[in-house]
Computed example of a mutant assay.
Amino acid sequence: MKYIVFILFTVMTNAAAQLMLKQGMMSLGTISFEGTNPLLKLLQIVFSPWVFFGLCTFVISMASHLYVLSKVELSFAYPFLSLAYVAVAIFAYFIFREDLNAWRIAGIAFICVGTVLIAQSGRDLGDREHEDETAGLSPDKIHTSGIVR
């Protein structure tokens, strides 16, 4: 569980990126590609401030996720990303006044329960570093210079 901070950082940067992208698209209004070069329109969208910072935040989130994947099992780390939906739904309710009805709240509760179960099932897995790659090799297969024959 020592990598949980990095996993939660990944979740929160992922959620923050979604919120920034939503804000960026709302600030651009209705997008129409008619009568304009689609590439120029796409560049206009990508380089609008909120969208650009949202995309940059996604890059940070992915870098954090790659680090986490190098330290813990995928089946332990990946389900935590569902917590980004929880964060997005809650923040979207407060920031964008989006609907948070009983069905969504129930779904959020199920996601949270499932994530807690996965976290509990991987208590020892989250702390275990990847095994040394040579652990399965017998000494006779390892050359003295460290090169496998």
Rank of each mutant, 00 (worst) to 15 (best):
V46G: 07
T36W: 07
S48G: 07
C56E: 04
M20P: 02
G136D: 05
T36L: 11
V59T: 10
T10V: 07
L55K: 09
A135I: 15
I60E: 00
L21N: 11
Q18S: 12
H130P: 14
F58V: 14
I105D: 02
A92W: 01
F52C: 08
G146Y: 00
L42Q: 06
P79H: 12
H143K: 13
T30G: 07
S70A: 09
S61L: 13
Y3F: 15
M12G: 01
F96A: 00
Q18H: 13
A102C: 01
T13E: 12
V46M: 14
M1A: 14
F91A: 15
S82D: 04
A17G: 04
L83P: 01
S32E: 08
R97M: 08
R128D: 01
K22F: 08
D132K: 10
F91C: 11
I108P: 00
G54H: 10
Q23G: 11
A89Q: 01
L66F: 13
C56H: 08
V51I: 15
R104P: 01
L43W: 10
F94E: 03
L40V: 11
A119Q: 08
V86H: 01
I60C: 08
T57W: 12
H143T: 15
C56R: 03
V59Y: 08
S70K: 10
L28C: 14
A15R: 06
V68R: 09
A92C: 03
F58D: 02
S82G: 04
V72I: 11
F47L: 14
I31C: 11
A77V: 04
M1Y: 01
F58H: 15
M62K: 14
A119Y: 06
M25R: 10
Y67Q: 04
F76R: 03
G29E: 08
S48I: 12
I118H: 03
E34V: 15
F52M: 11
K141Q: 06
F33D: 06
P49C: 02
A102M: 06
F6I: 09
G107K: 05
V59S: 13
I105N: 00
L100N: 00
S32L: 11
G122K: 07
A89E: 00
A119W: 10
G54P: 11
I31H: 13
A119N: 04
K41M: 14
I118K: 03
V59D: 10
C56P: 12
P38L: 14
S48Y: 07
W50Q: 10
Y78E: 04
